[in-house]
Write a protein that binds this DNA or RNA. Structure first.
Length: 299
DNA sequence: ACTTGCAGCGACGCGGAATA
DNA sequence: TATTCCGCGTCGCTGCAAGT
């Protein structure tokens, strides 16, 4: 038997006819007219050289070959349907592990509320936060190794979809009792007080550096640290000044003795976004996680 | 020289209407 | 239910033009 000339509707017809024992009814079930069903049945009969179904006093009944064929076709259709059906994602029962790209700052901003929500809505779900690799992070999103990237990545991600969560701006942070800023920000002190900064990661920090040099804003940098997370603690125990995002600064100001001030010059803003690959745009699990981020963090 | 895109043409198969 | 006839869409082939 050659499968090459086989039409999908012929298989659906065999299945429908086996169930109903009536050609007109089978035709209606597969959405064709009775003559069309008859044509299809006749073609199939020629192809397999067997009547498949014969007219009896009890309706259209299968031959022994037709009976076996109908059984195989039914199994095949069930397999096909399961292949075409979109798998549903059930957060309440899922044991899935989600991999996400986040910076250290991102972890601080997003994880507390995210974990709280996960424990309520998806207690079986595991989260694995990954550092963003220097090379080709988009390939990991494309392959599905990582589900989402979340943060202020300006250069990250070719070929990915993205959604803005919120806009961030820079503020200046000093210790709460800094003598040079008793009455808030002043331009003279801003230029005189030494600054601390975290090494650029290749993302938004570069944006600030470029902007300051373009505006010819002079600052004295006395401390470079490799990771941002140490910076607020150092600022709280020194006379140094640092730039950081308003959200991060406000979060740290709740747990450290810090003063948050508007910078004396206009600075660029930047967006925190979600990134995901087109391949997983319609994936139910990926969509659920994206919607969760949007629900929790979108402005 | 080869590839690519497009149009024209004929063959073929599917499905609907009418009918046996 | 089966058959005949017919319209219509699809597919494969061919030739042509333009681009590489």
């Amino acid at each position: 038997m050659q499968l090459a000339g086989l039409q999908f509707n012929q298989l659906r017809l065999v299945d429908a006819l086996a169930r109903s024992g009536n050609l007109s009814e089978a035709a209606a079930q597969i959405g064709v007219t009775q003559p069309a069903a008859s044509h299809a049945l006749a073609r199939l009969r020629r192809q397999v050289e067997d009547p498949i179904f014969v007219r009896t006093s009890d309706g259209m009944r299968p031959t022994p070959y037709g009976s076996r064929l109908a059984s195989s076709v039914r199994e095949a259709l069930v397999t096909l349907r399961s292949g075409f059906d979109r798998a549903l994602f059930e957060p309440a029962t899922s044991k899935r592990t989600f991999n996400v790209f986040m910076t250290g700052v991102g972890q601080m901003l997003f994880l507390p509320r995210l974990l709280e929500r996960l424990s309520l809505d998806a207690p079986g779900v595991t989260l694995r936060v990954r550092h963003v690799p220097a090379k080709a992070p988009h390939l990991m999103l494309e392959s599905g190794e990582v589900d989402l990237a979340i943060g202020a990545f300006t250069t990250l991600i070719a070929g990915c979809r993205q959604k803005r969560l919120f806009r961030e701006r820079y503020v200046c942070v000093v210790r709460h009792d800094h003598p040079a800023f008793k009455d808030g920000m002043n331009v003279e002190a801003f230029h005189r007080v030494p600054h601390a900064l975290a090494e650029p990661t290749g993302y938004v920090e570069d944006l600030l550096d470029r902007w300051l040099s373009r505006q010819k804003v002079r600052r004295i940098v006395k401390l470079h640290v490799p990771y941002f997370l140490a910076l607020p603690h150092l600022i709280a125990r020194s006379d140094l000044l640092a730039f950081m995002s308003n959200r991060v600064a406000e979060a740290y100001a709740e747990i450290l003795p810090l003063k948050v001030m508007q910078p004396p010059t206009k600075l660029p803003t930047y967006d925190s976004k979600l990134f995901w690959h087109e391949r997983f745009h319609r994936d139910p699990a990926n969509r659920w996680l994206r919607e969760l981020f949007v629900d929790l963090f979108s402005e």
